[in-house]
Write a protein that binds this DNA or RNA. Structure first.
Length: 847
DNA sequence: GTGTAATGCTATTGG
DNA sequence: AGCATTACAC
């Protein structure tokens, strides 16, 4: 961005940037320079003299926020840009909640439950209530609760909500309201909020504390919301409340790219917006700067199939470009090979780099075949999403210790680690503790902390073990304010016994787990050594919290100091106790360990005694942990140049907002994309279509679509037919395949004879019955086999010779299952071994 | 209470 | 096919 940033904008963009006062809606087509407008608009505000502290900008990912800030910093300088409140809804409001938590009865250091925590809690509740988790599927229960919260229906309100109760009764799940109520109570008791609570409780806060509302209304004089089409009702109300005083609110969105309805996003928010702010200024960004004419045209024809949409005309002045290639393959693996080979060829022929390629799919499970093929080709790739680092078991175990040290009432963490590593506290003991906690309406921690007061049939041995555990956790908690994140993190890893446990496991998985722990500790180290990023809204909070901190300074600090001294002595013992361990760990490659660990009380003490800000900005463990639950893969911080030059693999959802020169959209098959679960409702199918729209509009130069006729699912081979979305693209934009086999890709024939696959278009598709008309899924099984006599294969046996249309002659080497739902394994000459379902394979017995 | 073998469930999409 | 939970032997 240059100093004359306004000159870099087209007329509409420029007007949108300059229209800073009053409500604004920017409808931004794909690739229309939306991010540019947002960043320039904020820059412009600051240039005009608006204090960055008064700007709130809500983005879809924290990474997006970080990148925007960097760009803004280039014009206005970091000292200004870092003070902008910028981040996701969840991260911004979790910070506000932390500083206001006591008002709504939460501790400042509340825990954020992730989805796994929530599900596990629901499971526990079901068990305690004697409810069947087949009827009340935890995931389903959670999404019901989530939907209620996103519509601002509390558990009390839910229990009074006739419609909700009736729905649950109809669905034969009458206890739903009760589960919701208990779930909410348990979260509260544990000092925990789930993702939806972060928004829900923000609403409670703003609703019940007018002074708080007033404060933030006047703090946020200018509000901007990106990806507005993906906000839910709860978010909508927060924004509406905050913007009520100044009405300087600017939302940016594209109804055509709304792909999060499944988690409560409400496209109606766009339409409501016009009603809420009749004085609204609307700007439509319709010129696409990203893609070729072919890609834009193709995307437009697709999205035009949707009924509900705002009128706009996305166009581009870019070059015409290449047709969209469609590839048919015969298995998920050969689809992978095709993509990998195609990337290889493109790299060779066009001097392209890995980073210019993206492979997009509908479900994470599809990544496997792609990975294997890329590995075979020696193409570096990286996967976004899927099991994130923080979801690995060993990481969650260690984090559970951290969480418990920070908030001992955290029930989910407690249950996770009270007996890991094994320390003789078994299921019976834990069950009794839970019963006691429920009976007395207190947290599990309160029970184990006073385990000797509770007469719950535990013998002295069990009580002693529980006692030992609580003492350990308390010792960790006591170190929170006195030790750096890295020091304490390392200390806990050692003294919890986790490192020892993992070190003992020499299997490859065990080693990898151990390495992951190391990686986490490295992250902690980095965090500890880096300047705290005040640029994350924390800076503002520091000022907000000054009152509180001063109090702490005056009174509590003395306690801290005293505690330090006591622990200083304790630490001496720890030091010697650890010598052996240290040796052991050194061998295990953890040389960083203990020196830094047994530290530094003395060096640290002065910090604590010092000023208020230093307490809040010390790189302590609880600070590190605050946002962990809110971190997505896309938010991962450090990214080396090497990381960057890799082929990107991700779901289409994860690709939102990104762009790549070459995009492969794979798995374009009915029941996969569009997903099977989306086929019954028009609204769901339209969302899938928008997803397809998002997928192809990620591409700058070239789009390749692929589908496979077979695919493994749950270990079974299933047959697939091409997605309706392929034929929804106007045929003039497509380069259709005729036929191909995996052998061709192996021989790279595809790339050398591209013409063979073009110009023989459409028949295969046009001849199919038109689907998508009535939105009913077509039963591929019956259709494919209607004209074939399966009965002739009843007598098929191992050893027989068979013939297949595509694979040629082969020999049956295995049979599995009962006719007609049986499987056969056939070895085909020159092709190899294939598993086929008798019902579909159209085999002929030879001889 | 602990560790292993057998069973059963899962795979939309994600902050 | 892969993972998590459960069942069962020690």
């Amino acid at each position: 961005m240059s100093k004359n940033y306004l000159d870099e904008l087209n007329p509409v963009q420029r007007r949108a940037v300059e229209c800073t006062e009053g409500p604004v809606m920017i409808i931004a087509g794909a690739g229309s320079g939306k991010t540019r407008v947002l960043t320039y608009r904020i820059t412009h505000l600051i240039k005009k003299g608006v204090d960055p502290f008064n700007i709130l900008s809500l983005t879809f990912t924290n990474k997006a926020a970080r990148e925007m800030k960097e760009r803004i910093a280039k014009v206005v300088g970091t000292s200004e840009s870092k003070n902008i409140w910028m981040g996701t809804f969840h991260s911004v409001f979790s910070r506000i909640l932390r500083s206001e938590a006591e008002k709504i009865g939460y501790p400042q250091n509340f825990t954020i439950y992730d989805t796994d925590n929530s599900k596990s809690l629901i499971k526990a509740i079901l068990k305690e209530q004697g409810l069947d988790d087949k009827v009340y599927k935890p995931g389903m229960v959670l999404s019901r609760i989530s939907a209620a919260k996103n519509n601002l229906i509390s558990s009390q309100a839910y229990l009074n909500d006739k419609q909700a109760l009736e729905e649950d009764r109809q669905a034969a799940k009458p206890k739903m309201g009760l589960i919701y109520q208990i779930y909410a109570q348990r979260c509260f008791k544990a000092g925990a909020m789930d993702f939806d609570d972060l928004l829900f409780n923000t609403n409670i806060l703003l609703r019940d504390f007018p002074a708080v509302l007033h404060k933030y209304q006047h703090k946020f004089k200018y509000i901007m919301v990106d990806e507005y089409q993906d906000t839910n009702f709860s978010q909508y109300v927060i924004i509406k409340q905050l913007a009520a005083a100044y009405r300087n609110i600017c939302v940016v969105g594209d109804d055509a790219q709304s792909i999060y309805a499944f988690r409560g996003a409400n496209i109606q928010n766009i339409f409501n917006y016009e009603k809420d702010y009749p004085e609204l200024n609307i700007f439509k960004l319709e010129q696409n700067y990203r893609s070729t004419k072919i890609i834009v045209g193709a995307a437009n024809t697709v999205i035009s199939k949707n009924k509900e949409q705002l009128k706009k005309n996305v166009f581009t002045e870019n070059i015409e470009g290449e047709l969209i290639k469609v590839m048919k393959t015969e298995s998920d693996n050969s689809e992978g090979n095709f993509v990998a080979n195609s990337i290889f060829e493109t790299k060779m022929n066009e001097q392209a780099h890995n980073r210019e390629f993206a492979i997009l799919y509908r479900t994470n499970a599809q990544s496997r075949a792609m990975e294997e093929a890329l590995r075979k080709q020696n193409i570096a790739y990286r996967i976004f999403g899927g099991l994130s680092f923080y979801q690995r078991k060993e990481i969650k175990d260690l984090l559970a210790y951290y969480r418990l040290a920070i908030n001992s009432n955290d029930e989910e963490s407690l249950k996770r680690i009270i007996n890991y590593p094994a320390r003789g506290i078994g299921d019976t003991t834990i069950d009794r503790i839970i019963v006691a906690a429920n009976d007395h309406n207190i947290s599990l921690w309160r029970v184990i902390e006073n385990i000797n007061e509770f007469d719950i049939g535990l013998n002295a041995g069990a009580k002693a073990k529980v006692d030992e555990f609580t003492i350990m956790i308390k010792s960790f908690s006591a170190m929170l304010q006195t030790h750096s994140a890295y020091d304490l993190g390392q200390y806990i890893a050692v003294h919890s016994g986790i490192l020892r446990d993992l070190y003992a496991d020499k299997s490859p998985e065990g080693v990898s787990r151990h390495e992951n722990i190391q990686e986490l500790l490295n992250g902690l180290k980095e965090f500890t050594e880096s300047e705290i990023d005040i640029n994350d809204i924390g800076a503002e909070l520091t000022i907000e919290n000054q009152d509180a901190d001063e109090k702490q300074d005056a009174g509590e600090n003395q306690d801290i100091r005293i505690k330090n001294q006591e622990e200083g002595d304790e630490n001496q013992e720890l030091r010697s106790e650890n010598q052996e361990e240290e040796q052991e760990l050194k061998e295990a490659g953890i040389d960083t360990a203990i020196n830094g660990l047994l530290f530094s009380f003395d060096e640290q003490k002065p910090d604590i005694e010092n000023t208020t800000t230093e307490i809040t900005t010390n790189p302590t463990l609880d600070l590190f942990m605050r946002d962990i639950a809110l971190m997505t893969d896309a938010d991962k911080k450090t990214e080396t140049e090497e990381d960057r030059n890799k082929v990107s693999l991700m779901t289409i959802h994860a690709a939102k907002g990104l762009e790549f020169p070459y995009v492969y959209v794979v798995g374009l098959e009915e029941n996969l994309f569009p997903s099977q679960m989306s086929l019954t409702e028009r609204a769901d199918l339209e969302e899938e279509r928008r997803l397809f729209y998002v997928a192809i509009t990620r591409a700058e130069k070239r789009v390749t679509l692929s589908y496979s006729t077979t695919r493994y699912r749950w270990g079974n081979l299933i047959y697939c037919e091409p997605s309706r979305f392929i034929e929804e693209v106007d045929a003039k934009y497509l380069d259709m395949p005729t036929e191909s086999s995996s052998r061709l890709f192996g021989n790279e024939e595809y790339a050398s004879k591209p013409k063979q696959y073009s110009n023989k278009p459409k028949e295969t598709f046009v001849q199919r019955p038109v689907i998508g008309k009535n939105l009913v899924k077509i039963n591929s099984a019956s259709k494919n086999t209607s004209d074939f006599d399966t009965e002739s294969l009843r007598s098929l046996q191992v050893g027989m010779e068979v013939e297949h249309d595509r694979f040629g002659k082969g020999k049956v080497i295995n049979m599995d299952g009962d006719f007609p739902n049986n499987k056969t394994t056939v070895f085909f000459e020159g092709v190899g071994q294939k598993q086929l379902l008798i019902k579909f394979a159209k085999l002929r017995i030879v001889g």
